[in-house]
């Protein structure tokens, strides 16, 4: 499971993991913007960015090969559009699509693989993202696994009776989705009941946010400046 793996990675310990989520979000955004605005394939620049991300992956003690392959999930789509670009006589664009999408994907993966989602959401909260949305995301993430397990249990049950998953007819599939929906609904009420029983009054409590240290600020500033400077110096 991809998200169980990322969740495990995000709870490792390293200098990168210990950085404040706000600092990491800002650094990642800097990298993303710089990458997104690259228009010409400049080998030096791509190499510098790749090296920067690589250093962070190593410093975060993340498995290098699996990170590199994990970021490659964007490549099929990028390749498809890349082929179209080459066919329409624009190989530069094809290369840029591949480079930009891969570097961006690696940046995003590095961010979530070195920051537990709850802390990341806390960081986004401090950066002004709507709290309500973040809370919905938190619940979504928490119950992702639970509901997927229910769905696969239902699929197994259906398959053991029908002999095969593929024999499920359209209507039966809809019935399964309906039952899953009803169960999700029931679960949501049960969760709400458990929350109320423990004193929930409509506001999600949060820990007092961890303070942004000087080292975090220096990291964020240095990362963003390095990224932007490289982008503008290597043309």
């Amino acid at each position: 499971m991809r998200h169980a793996r990322i969740d495990r990675w995000s709870r490792l310990d390293s200098p990168v993991h210990r950085l404040h989520p706000v600092a990491k979000v800002l650094a990642a955004l800097g990298m993303l913007v710089a990458v997104a605005t690259m228009t010409k394939p400049v080998l030096h620049l791509v190499a510098v960015y790749f090296a920067m991300l690589g250093v962070c992956v190593l410093a975060a003690r993340l498995p290098v090969v699996r990170m590199l392959t994990g970021a490659a999930v964007v490549l099929p789509f990028a390749c498809a559009i890349g082929v179209v670009s080459i066919l329409s006589g624009d190989p530069n664009r094809a290369i840029m699509l591949l480079v930009r999408s891969y570097l961006s994907s690696l940046t995003a993966l590095l961010l979530v693989a070195s920051t537990p989602l709850s802390e990341l959401l806390g960081g986004l909260d401090r950066l002004g993202a709507p709290a309500f949305l973040l809370q919905v995301m938190q619940f979504l993430y928490r119950y992702l696994m639970v509901l997927r397990e229910e769905a696969s249990a239902m699929r197994d049950a259906a398959a053991s009776r029908a002999g095969s998953v593929r024999i499920l007819e359209f209507k039966k599939a809809a019935g399964a989705a309906g039952v899953l929906f009803a169960r999700a609904h029931t679960r949501a009420s049960a969760i709400h009941r458990a929350m109320v029983a423990r004193g929930f009054d409509g506001r999600m409590p949060t820990f007092r946010p961890t303070p942004l240290l000087l080292s975090d600020a220096i990291f964020a500033a240095a990362a963003v400046c390095a990224v932007v400077a490289a982008r503008l110096a290597l043309k």
């Binding site: 709850s118 928490r142 029983a197 929930f200 009054d201 409590p205 820990f207």
Partner: peptide, 23 residues
């Protein structure tokens, strides 16, 4: 409650246990 999954709704164990005091 019977189903612990419904009761443990916070992302980590510590945050969950601290929910009631914080609330």
């Amino acid at each position: 409650f019977q189903d612990s999954d419904n009761q443990l709704f916070m992302p980590t164990v510590l945050e969950d246990v601290a929910f009631a005091p914080l609330a």
